[in-house]
Amino acid sequence: MRIFDPHVHMTSRTTDDYERMYAAGVRAVVEPAFWLGQPRTNVGSFLDYFDALLGWEPYRAAQYGIRHHCTLALNPKEANDPRCAGVLDELPRYLLKDSVVAVGEVGYDSMTPEEDRVFEAQLALAEEHGLPVLVHTPHRDKAAGARRTLDVVKGMDPGMVLVDHLNELTVGMVHEAGCWMGFSIYPDTKMDPQRMVAILKEYGTERMIVNSAADWGRSDVLKTREVGEAMLAAGFTDEDVDRVLWQNPVAFYGQSGRLTLDDVESGGDYEGNTILRGTR
């Protein structure tokens, strides 16, 4: 089972996790820029974080045979802090980087006017740079937040939009809108593998994307694999599993033109490589 985790906050994980992920079949990840638990107080703090997502973290992932890409944005939580607003001025130069495959996570947290402004500004940046968009939907008042999100992205090509953290109550409207549908599988919040399988049975595997979203909270980097196993147990084929866990995220982020998977798709033995391995 080859796995592409399209949303996982590896910055908050240990190297043990990288080892376990590789053993479970994970060969590529996308790490979206988000909040770090402790609110940031200045723009420089974001820039060091972005630099880590473009430098140290892909290097660390490569040591374990995993290809690391990222999405960059000012996240909706911190969009509300005027001290962080200057991030928007720095983003354009970051969106040029080779391993940036989308703008994200953008969207709503508390649905404030500041969040509206930052969300729309970043959608414009995505269009300017030819990048798809990863949209976070709020945890509080989720259905209303998802509806409002779809209103905001209405003018865009729905194929360039992935609406994330969906559940039974929000999947229908996103399916209808034609956007990609993302599901974060957690030990005890958001979605679990069994409920995910039920959604796949109802809506099919097209435009469906599953992630572990693992971060510093209670979460599990192997939830993607559990979904694959639950799908097989429920009668889905290997091809169905590969579509959800590999082909779909590759198709979505591939629209950036910047996804490079040649080294991991070949299935070569990374441990035999030289110390100079990793992305240039």
Binding site: D51, L54, G55, W56, P58, Y59, R93, D98, S99, R280
Partner: peptide, 10 residues
């Protein structure tokens, strides 16, 4: 200073 790891290397 503005580069990612690949730019810095080159």
């Amino acid at each position: 200073w503005q580069g990612d790891a690949g730019e810095r290397l080159e």
